[in-house]
Design a protein around this nucleic acid. Structure first.
Length: 681
DNA sequence: TAGAAGCAGATTTTT
DNA sequence: TCTGCTTCTA
């Protein structure tokens, strides 16, 4: 018990000891949230509550595994059974594995990701934008609307059309035994809602429920939580309304703002002591967030020294900006700072490019968090499709992806023909190839027919092979289809080959660790894996602000503080959410924070003039700002490089409107060129 | 059928 | 600017 209380402040202790009833823990940035939750889990267990009746829900696998390991270290004796600590989606998956029969569907389903979903939508040949349909379908599911509901409520023709696509999409998923991310929440809710007994039983099973990052829950998650806690109301949610940054994907900030009104006798505990940042950083963050009206209201209290003033830097353009930041970072590293304690954040991924270039030029190694995920890479998705197809040959979706990859001489015409015939016969493509051979032979060329037969045979062989030896299976897969070999022949194959090898390794590891598991367990496991644990490289990090949530860095740079970029302005802009995003960004910094803005940026193929972000003045970071004008970077005699004209020497510097014009001598020929078109060397 | 070329459209954040 | 898609050509 002593161990649990070690290093907890009064508010944290109170949160840990409050066992029963509904509890709202408002945990400000850096206030020891994870510590509080894990201590609470340990406290519950030490007070005799069986681990099996505790459920802790998080939003990321990373958060879940971190909590798991921290809870273990708090418990004195080894416990044989750890409480379930997982993401909402993983919980949904587990639930469905046990209860899918309530919907008369097999529990051997496979999870599809957003990319797959979009491809399916696309296959319905619509001329409406796919992202719109994608988000509408999500909205329908999260509002528990059936395709019929959607069709009935649609007024405009376009929305009728979307509702029809939704219907087709749902049919497609069911026929192919697939579920999407939204289903992992919606289907469990549906089952619980329709089966009162099961609902009671489930709720009784999880007597103590805790939810992390509660500000990010959406309506459906809220409803699901109500069902799960219906028998006991022991629901403890932890979150920070000021860090709600996922409104755009359906998170409802009202869930946390109105929690205490919805659940009676809610105990509210505020954790406001910040153990992360210096006072100057906190002061600026507090000032920024104070401009929001829609909040519960709390002010972070510092526990550290004042530290350095936050630094606002300003540059002529993004090239100057990245050069300056790269050299600042280089200096920090030379001064002995661990690169892992340094990060650069941006609001939109497009801004990563200039920073990457600057770091590359300065020779500073970096890792980009987020970006294209491992499991989203084409070569990995190909492999996954093969595995899915072997797990379930009737998965037309996966079949379509790999039927001619590696190229085996099947053209679009032949493929379309088979797809269409299978559709007319109401069978899967695989069944059509294997059981409608006479028809198929007439429909496609001899060569295509043989290829298709061989393909189907290969899939069947691999199905048998996996039953015999899962471990050797992966070699057999490669021998049969030669995916690695195929990618080797493609340009810039090195990364892809590395990825493929890593995937093969992952599969082997999984087989070793779960020798009795089925292929679709592996597939579902990886479908929920977002970003794999980062390798502990000694390099600085660059990432979007969203990706930085929950992380902290000694030295932090936030770039792109201009109106239009941050806050990002557009039709769907929620200015308060943008401001919360600013708050999240600033509170990632422990020691030194630098906010950077630029006069102009090259974006979407053109240069745009920009003005400083309102956030800079709102957080009081305008004074002391340092303007580095491009004209000071170029002077007579500076060597520059132009993409077409090559290397030249500046003979004159002048200003034209906001741009900086250089007169450059390229080996005897003098030209007038805007500074943005050349690079300093 | 497969590669090349040309064209249009899109560029926020992601479990 | 870049990507992904369609059309064109060998």
């Amino acid at each position: 018990m002593e161990k649990i209380y070690l290093n907890l402040n009064e508010a944290q202790k109170e949160a840990v000891q409050q066992v029963d009833g509904s509890i709202l823990i408002l945990a400000g940035a850096g206030s020891g949230k994870t510590k509080t939750i894990t201590s609470r889990v340990a406290y519950l267990i030490q007070n005799g509550i069986p681990p099996s009746s505790i459920l802790t829900l998080t939003f990321t696998n990373k958060a879940a595994s971190e909590m798991r390991s921290r809870a273990i270290s708090l418990l004195d004796e080894d416990i044989s059974y750890m409480p379930l600590m997982c993401t909402f989606h993983k919980f949904g998956l587990l639930f469905l594995k046990f209860n899918m029969q309530y919907l008369n569907r097999p529990n051997s389903f496979v999870i599809i990701d957003t990319d797959d979903k979009k491809r399916i939508i696309k296959s319905f040949n619509t001329d409406l934008p796919i992202p719109l349909i994608n988000s509408e379908i999500s909205r329908f599911k999260n509002n528990l609307l059936t395709p019929e509901d959607a069709q009935n409520s649609a007024q405009m023709p376009n929305f009728k059309h979307i509702a029809n696509i939704y219907k087709k999409y749902e049919e497609y998923l069911e026929q192919n035994n697939l579920v999407d991310f939204d289903d992992l929440l919606a289907l469990p809710f549906k089952i619980l809602d329709q089966n009162e007994e099961l609902c009671k039983e489930t709720s009784k099973r999880y007597q103590y429920i805790m939810v992390d990052e509660y500000q990010d829950t959406n309506d459906l998650q809220f409803k699901l939580l109500k069902k799960l806690s219906s028998q006991h109301n022991n629901l403890c949610v932890v979150g920070d309304d000021d860090q709600s940054i996922y409104g755009w994907r359906g998170a409802n900030i009202k869930n946390i703002l109105e929690f205490k009104d919805i659940f009676e006798n809610t105990k509210v505990i505020k954790l406001t002591h910040n153990y992360r940042s210096t006072n100057n950083i906190l002061k600026a963050a507090n000032e920024l967030i104070q401009n929001n009206r829609n909040r519960l209201g709390k002010k972070l209290i510092g526990t550290k020294e004042d530290g350095k003033e936050i630094d606002a830097i300003h540059h002529y353009d993004e090239m100057m900006e990245s050069r300056d930041i790269a050299s600042k970072i280089k200096k920090l590293i030379l001064d002995g700072v661990d690169p892992r304690d340094i990060a650069v954040l941006y609001r939109i991924n497009a801004l990563s490019r200039s920073i990457e270039e600057g770091l590359n030029r300065a020779g500073v190694p970096y890792k980009m968090v987020g970006g294209l995920k491992f499991y989203e890479r084409a070569e990995i998705k190909d492999l996954i499709s093969y595995l899915r197809l072997i797990a379930n040959p009737h998965d037309d979706f996966s079949l379509k992806r790999v039927i001619n990859k590696p190229k085996r001489g099947l053209g679009k015409a032949s493929v379309d023909k088979v797809l269409y015939s299978a559709f007319l016969n109401k069978t899967s493509v695989f069944t059509y190839i294997t059981s409608h051979q006479e028809e198929l032979e007439k429909e496609v060329s001899k060569k295509a027919f043989i290829t298709l037969q061989e393909f189907a045979k290969n899939i069947e062989d691999l199905q048998n092979s996996i039953k015999e030896s899962t471990y050797e299976f992966i070699d057999k897969l490669e021998d049969t289809f030669g995916i690695r070999k195929y990618y080797q022949t493609l340009p810039d194959s090195l990364d892809r080959i590395t990825n493929i090898d890593e995937f093969y390794g992952l599969f082997r590891d999984f087989v070793l660790q779960h020798p009795d598991s089925l292929l679709d367990e592996f597939l579902n496991d990886i479908a929920l894996q977002s970003d794999q644990d980062q390798i502990d490289e000694r390099s600085i990090s660059i990432m979007s602000i969203h990706a930085s949530k929950g992380l902290e860095f000694e030295y932090l740079f936030v770039i792109g503080l201009e109106e239009g970029f941050f806050p990002l302005l557009g039709d769907g802009t929620d200015l308060e959410e943008e401001r919360r995003l600013g708050y999240v960004a600033m509170t990632r910094a422990k020691k030194e924070l630098t906010l950077s803005s630029s006069d102009s940026r090259y974006y979407k193929g053109k240069r745009t003039g920009l003005s400083k972000s309102r956030f800079l003045s709102e957080c009081g970071a305008t004074k002391g700002s340092l303007k580095i004008d491009r004209t000071t970077a170029y002077k007579k005699g500076t060597l520059v490089k132009h993409k077409i004209f090559g290397i030249g020497r500046v003979t004159e510097v002048s200003k034209v409107k906001r741009e900086c014009k250089l007169t450059i001598n390229f080996g005897g020929t003098t030209r007038g060129i805007l500074a943005s078109f050349v690079e300093r060397i």
